[in-house]
């Protein structure tokens, strides 16, 4: 059964999946790291990105517009949600935050179902990127190759925002100590709103760029959410690098196990998470600071 062609193809699958998980997870981890809120509606944000993009695509026929619409719409949803609801939960127990974001996730999913039905929607890849690319040892869908590039660029942009700009500096300082940032006279409220928006945008962006690969449906984000948790736990909560590393590892575990028996791929993913928890309770790149 084993063949090198299959092995390399599966590694590629893992890389694409891993990059995508890395992007979604980094959104979750930035929000959590800065605001201390674990956003259980993150999977729904991923789904919203796909739908917003799909609507834009059907109106304009442009994939670029679809991507922008997906990312910006979800950012807007994030900002509005933060302003209207999440903001009032910073002072409340972590459990309340989990409950309200969990509820919001259901509301987002069911609202989309209400307006667009359960029928899955497809956003075709741009003509330039559709079709198959022969790589010598295998053929691979062109768009999936492009997706790898798109997500890598997105992650780099996110990295740049976090590590090379003033807002990023504040965000990272906020991860260390929100009180301190507050005392520096920075308008932490605005920063929080922006962070929630950026984190949501990462999910929304991932949602639309993934739409040509997996058709979108209202519940497309549910499975993603759980996988994102695993990624974040493996990589370390609140760590951007951890999210990326965790995503890549998770992608490879899922793909390579699939080669032997796809039924065990998710089981193996969770086994890996268990191992990490036993050996490095704070995740591969996490620190003991945040709980």
């Amino acid at each position: 059964m084993f063949s090198w062609g299959n092995f390399i193809s599966q590694c590629f699958n893992g890389l694409v999946l891993g990059a995508l998980l890395a992007l979604i997870s980094s959104g979750l981890t930035i929000i959590y790291g800065t605001l201390g809120v674990l956003n259980l509606a993150h999977g729904a944000m991923f789904m919203l990105g796909g739908y917003a993009g799909w609507v834009a695509y059907t109106q304009t026929g442009s994939f670029i517009v679809a991507i922008m619409a997906g990312a910006l719409f979800v950012m807007l949803v994030g900002v509005v949600t933060e302003r209207l609801i999440i903001r009032h939960f910073y002072a409340r127990p972590a459990e309340d935050q989990l409950l309200v974001t969990f509820g919001l996730g259901i509301v987002f999913v069911e609202t989309v179902r209400f307006f667009f039905g359960s029928l899955s929607k497809t956003v075709p890849p741009p003509a330039l990127l559709s079709g198959i690319t022969p790589l010598g040892f295998m053929v691979y869908p062109t768009y999936r190759l492009a997706l790898l590039g798109i997500v890598t660029v997105a992650l780099l942009v996110l990295y740049f925002i976090l590590y090379r700009t003033r807002i990023g500096m504040i965000v990272r300082a906020g991860i260390e100590d929100a009180v301190m940032v507050d005392s520096l006279g920075i308008n932490i409220q605005k920063v929080f709103m922006l962070v929630f928006g950026i984190g949501a945008m990462a999910a929304g962006f991932a949602g639309i760029v993934n739409a040509p690969v997996v058709a979108i449906a209202p519940d497309v984000g549910d499975a993603i959410l759980v996988q994102t948790f695993v990624v974040v736990v493996i990589g370390g909560v609140g760590s951007f690098g951890g999210a990326v590393l965790g995503g890549l590892i998770a992608g490879q575990i899922i793909s390579l196990t699939s080669m032997i028996d796809p039924a065990y791929s998710y089981v193996m993913l969770f086994v890996a998470m268990t191992l990490v928890l036993v050996l490095r309770p704070y995740g591969l790149l996490g620190t003991a600071g945040r709980e």
């Binding site: 063949s3 062609g5 299959n6 193809s9 599966q10 699958n13 694409v16 999946l17 295998m138 053929v139 999936r144 690969v213 997996v214 497309v220 499975a223 899922i254 793909s255 699939s258 080669m259 796809p262 791929s265």
Partner: peptide
């Protein structure tokens, strides 16, 4: 199932 790429890769090979 949402993403069939792993299954399809096995079939492709």
């Amino acid at each position: 199932t949402q993403d069939f790429s792993q299954y399809l890769t096995n079939i492709a090979n």
